[in-house]
């Protein structure tokens, strides 16, 4: 169920965004119930943290599961704007504008 546990391929950020792919929307038969629920959940984009919270799974379990599901093409993962270090100034400008417009 958590195949690939030892592989550190996906050190997904807490705020990494997950969305269901066309394949994940029509996966056919034989999908694990948890995978199916995550596919349903992420039709509307969700972060890794939201998936863990809504699935009532420890973060580490959700992290591995999301990594596996991305590998089998059920979901697409978008690492955050600042995955490798700091957000850039252009992104921060957009955050500032968004907050001011709230």
């Amino acid at each position: 169920m958590t195949g690939g546990r030892t592989r550190a391929r996906y050190q997904l950020a807490l705020e990494a965004l997950v969305s269901t792919t066309p394949q994940g929307r029509n996966p056919g038969y034989g999908l694990m119930p948890e995978h199916q629920r995550i596919c349903e959940l992420c039709v509307e984009i969700k972060s890794l943290a939201e998936i863990a919270a809504l699935m009532r799974m420890p973060l580490g379990v959700a992290r591995v599961m999301v990594g596996d599901m991305a590998e089998s093409g059920l979901i697409a993962v978008q690492q955050p704007g600042a995955a490798e270090g700091k957000p850039d100034l252009a992104l921060l400008e957009r955050v500032l504008l968004g907050l001011r417009n709230l």
């Binding site: 807490l14 705020e15 984009i45 943290a49 939201e50 919270a53 957009r94 955050v95 968004g98 907050l99």
Partner: peptide
Amino acid sequence: TVAMDFGRVSLDRDLILYLF
């Protein structure tokens, strides 16, 4: 077990802020 609260703020149609 360590628990963390978090929330979400949509800042634009393609930009989401998470608060942890």
